[in-house]
């Protein structure tokens, strides 16, 4: 589904990630972990063309990510960070913002669909009328996830997505991502999140150190250093 083939990304003379090679199958859930500044987030954002590799290739499906298919890649992938960007003053406007773009114009979801997704994420529908600035970090994250679901995204790039959530909200998010098969590439330090993932990629100084199929107890120690 997504594959890195010896990808190196640099800023000036400094390499942020080096010779990154790994692949993610459809419906697989993968975690990147490692210390802050090790290049995990750069790996995520390189998939959606935020950085052009200095060398190596990122594949999306069978095709290399390039200027012709980057639009399609971005329409398929959702990238949600710790402090998600909502881009509007009212929550409803934030949820419906993508439908003001030409790519989704005229495809705004009906209220029932919005309410169902909000319900799945344990959000009250009254949140729609709230000012975004009054939402908690956890609510903002769930609104960003709701928006991605409304756009029918298939691949999620999640950067510490459960870090700001309380136990109940986290349970709702975990339930949502496990009940429907999505391809997920995540950055996380959350042991609860590890439980729903099947592959663990350790990154240090911009390089992949190891890829394991089970959470390594040492991971928790590494995470503690962050």
């Amino acid at each position: 589904m997504v594959r890195f083939d010896t990808v190196t990304v640099s800023y000036g003379n400094t390499s942020i990630i080096q010779d990154i090679t790994f692949g993610v199958e459809e419906f697989e859930r993968v975690v990147l972990y490692g210390k802050s500044g090790s290049g995990k987030s750069t790996v995520l954002t390189t998939i959606v063309g935020a950085h052009i590799p200095e060398s190596g290739t990122v594949y999306f499906g069978e095709e290399a990510v390039n200027k012709r298919n980057i639009g399609e890649v971005r329409r398929t992938v959702s990238c949600i960070g710790q402090e998600p960007v909502l881009g509007a003053e009212k929550t409803r406007d934030a949820l419906l913002l993508p439908f003001s773009y030409r790519a989704h114009r005229g495809k705004a979801p009906p209220d029932e669909q919005i309410n169902r997704i909000l319900h799945d994420l344990q959000l009250d529908h009254e949140i729609l009328e709230k000012d975004v600035s009054f939402l908690s970090s956890g609510e903002k994250q769930r609104i960003a996830i709701a928006r991605a679901l409304l756009l029918d995204k298939k691949i999620f790039l999640l950067d510490e997505v459960t870090s700001a959530l309380d136990i109940e909200s986290k349970r709702a998010v975990l339930q949502l991502f496990t009940s429907t098969p999505y391809t997920i590439i995540s950055v996380s330090h959350d042991p609860d999140w590890f439980k729903i993932c099947s592959r663990f990629i350790k990154i240090a100084n911009g390089r992949i150190v190891e890829i394991t199929a089970t959470p390594d107890p040492a991971m928790y120690a590494v995470n503690g250093e962050d």
Partner: peptide, 17 residues
């Protein structure tokens, strides 16, 4: 606001949008 800008692109916005 690079991240914010990227978010708009990921929601299907063209460069101009």
């Amino acid at each position: 606001n690079e991240r914010e800008f990227l978010t708009y692109l990921l929601m299907g916005a063209t460069l101009r949008e």
